[in-house]
Structures are given as structure tokens and as C-alpha cells.
Design a binder for these strands. Sequence first.
DNA 1: ACAAAAGTGTTAATCTTACACCCATGT
DNA 2: ACATGGGTGTAAGATTAACACTTTTGT
Lengths: 230, 230
Amino acid sequence: MTITQNIKIAVDAIVFGYANNNINVLLIKQKFGELKNQWALVGGFVKDDERLNDAVNRELNEEAGIKVNYLEQLYTYGDDINRDPRFRVVSVAYFALVNSTKLVLTADSDAEDAKWFPIGNLPPLAFDHREIITTAHNRLKSKLTYQPIGFDLLPEEFLFSDLENLYCTILEKEIDRRNFRKKTLSFGIIEETVNFSPKKNGRPAKLFKFNKQKYNELFKGGFLFEIKFA
Amino acid sequence: MTITQNIKIAVDAIVFGYANNNINVLLIKQKFGELKNQWALVGGFVKDDERLNDAVNRELNEEAGIKVNYLEQLYTYGDDINRDPRFRVVSVAYFALVNSTKLVLTADSDAEDAKWFPIGNLPPLAFDHREIITTAHNRLKSKLTYQPIGFDLLPEEFLFSDLENLYCTILEKEIDRRNFRKKTLSFGIIEETVNFSPKKNGRPAKLFKFNKQKYNELFKGGFLFEIKFA
DNA sequence: ACAAAAGTGTTAATCTTACACCCATGT
DNA sequence: ACATGGGTGTAAGATTAACACTTTTGT
């Protein structure tokens, strides 16, 4: 049985980072082809002997020199036959998060043309990448409420106010500080450290840490993380 | 820029049907190749000029002569390079539901080798199809609690007790009839019809109908369907 | 009259929301 | 002493959970 098929498989990564009350998306500038100088998602073709997830990690490393904290498959784009003007490409898009200590892109490899853009201020994008980012953004917003992925956008140790601001920013909602704190602490998956923030203004704030192991245990026991606010 | 790549793209469909307090999965018997006579999911290779979702619908029609009530992309399987022993295949799996009036497979097309199997009693399966079905089954269980997809497994008009049994069966939980009815009716998306069930035993029961249009309106306004029970 | 499944309300417990003042530091 | 952001408790309201008897039909 022989199959002739002329479709190429690519992977693309939507990488989100959080800084200064802003969600940022990692983009790279196309260097070749018809779409030269347009901005696009990190991505590329899958090698014959390469797993899909290895392909994404490889591209992230080659094109932006970055290692992500969280990676999951998002959606496979293959319904628009002409999404790539050159030939038919089906792209498996991955949703990724990096914590804010990695927001400075190191200039090694091809990374010079990689840049963070605030989600509210994206440049014109190649292919259907704008649409893909919208899907990823929706995933971010909804997933934040039922999985503890916010911690993958923050440094190892963080201020409670940072966590709160992250939720406010991404969900575009006002949050009551007391209720938020009560709720999130009640899960028992966030721990106080002995450290304090190096702040200029106001009362010094304790630094907190997400206990992932504890979360995993609770999760196995049926516990569901959930943050919802009117 | 030329890309050489030797990976084929296929689609597979996990179709669930509900009957007699049982979830059933649609499988077909392989006719050719090394895996001849093994059971497998409906699926096949994508044509060069065919959208992914068109490919699934075509395969569903060709191999089982069935039209589904609900279809969504599930996951793309491409991390196991040898999942198909012949050559590398990346498969986009789709999650589908049919309502119980369609559980009798018409014998047209290739459908003679298509059969429903209770999820608790599957035959040995080709490729990684067992694993794919597990993922789909999990999606069914979780989605049932936050989207009104249960109605796609029932006939147009159904008994409240059928709906309740469907939830009990799929979620593997006891449900309080009064609380369940109160909650689901409170959404205002289920309507009483004038018809009654043709039952042998007990008090005749009203037939109900899901008002999809109403749900869509509410959904746009921010309403979230949610059925959770301890 | 009895078997079988449908239909229906109330109460306690829990969770969610709304809301305002004091605290610790730097300048 | 004041400006800045951190930290905390309580009460009303809404939602969920637990629970048992009556109704309508066929036999």
C-alpha cells in the first residue's frame, strides 16, 4: 500500500511571558522567502525522526535560545489549505509559558531577531499566526482559572501581589485582595518563604512559593484547583 | 526553499454513542495490511486538497456510513515515531458524538465491518488506538460537566431520567434526582414538550428537549453551563 | 391493591461576596 | 509625619447537599 501525499508538517509555539502587568508574546522575524521581514511565531518543519514535542523545543532553542516552563499542545491547524502560500502545511501549535526571569532573550544562536511583544500591540503577522495567538490567548485565560499555570509565568519566589496582578491582568477583572488571598491559600499549595521582597516603598512583603509536588498529590486525590471571580 | 519530509498525515475519529446505560465506541475491522482483521478507529489519510475536518467526515461516511452530531479536534498524535509500523504517521484525532437514534449502522458502503463496542469491553486495537480512546473518554467525562454535550448523545426528545442516567453512567457517580432536575432546569435551556414517553411500567414521563439556540444566546452573554456533583 | 417509575420542597451546611481599617517600612 | 503598598476578619447572601413521600399508570 503506497500513499502519495504532499502535505508538510510543522510545529509552531505561542510563548507567553508576563512582565509589568502585561502579557507578552514571543515573535521572530522571518529571514527568508516571500514573507521576509514579517513577524511570526517560533516554529518550523518537523524532522522525519523527531517527535513533535522535540521539534518545538528544538525550534525554541534554535530560534530564540529559550527553555519554557510549561508546554502543551494547543491545536492543529489544517483546515485552511492555503494558510502557507508556498505549499500545504499542517501546523501543530503548542502553547508555552516562560517565567519572568527568562524574559531577557540571550543573543546566542539566531536569537537576535526574536522579540517580546505585548499582546495588545502585536505587529502584522505572517500566515494565520494572529488567529493562532488569539486561540492561545483564550486558552491562557480559561486555563488560568482551573489549573495552577500562573506560577509558570512568575519567578520561583513571588509576591502575593504579583500573583494577584497576574490574575487581574490576564482575566481583565478586578479582584478583592482579601478574598483572593483567602481562597488561594486555602488550597495549601502556596507556601510562605522566609524571604522578603527588596521593595522601595511600603511595608516589606513576604515572598511565596508554589509547591508543585503538593499540588500533584492533591490532584491525584481528586482536588480541583479553581479560581473564579465575578 | 525545498523541504523534504517523509511524514504522512492521517485523521482518526473516536465516535461515542450511548445506549442501555452504556457508552459505546465505534470501531472498524482493518481489511488490509499487517494489521488485517484487527479492530481500529475510523480514520485514514488526508488528501492533498482536503481540509482536516472534511477528511474525518469523509472517512466517517465511507467507513461507517454515519453522520455525527458533534465533532471537535481532540489531540494530534505524533510523539511516538513508530506508532504506525509501516512508516511515520502523524494522526489528528477527532472526538465525535452521535445520538442514540443512529446507533444502528446502516449496511451501505464499507459499513459491514463497523461495529459498536461498549467502552468497558473493547477488543484488542491496532496502533495506539487504545490510548487515543482513553484520552477521548477522559475528554467526554470532563466536558460533560461544563458543556451541554450530553444532548448530542440522546435523541431529540428524551426523558429526564435518560439524561440523569447518562450523567450517572459517564461520570460513574450517584446523582440525587431532585437536585439534578432542579439544577439542570434552572439553566432554562431544557424545555418540556407536550409528548409523553411510551413506557410500559410506572407513571408516564414527559419528554424534554434541549434548546440549543437558547443556550447559544446565554453563552454569548457569559453564562456557563456547569454540572458538578460530589 | 400493588409494583414501577415519575414527580416534587425544605432545611442545614458550605461557599462566595462585599466591604474598611491598621501595619511596617522608607523618605 | 506622611506616603506607599502589605496584611487581615466578619457578616449577609447565594449555592449546594442531604433527605422521603406522593402521583400516575399498568397489571
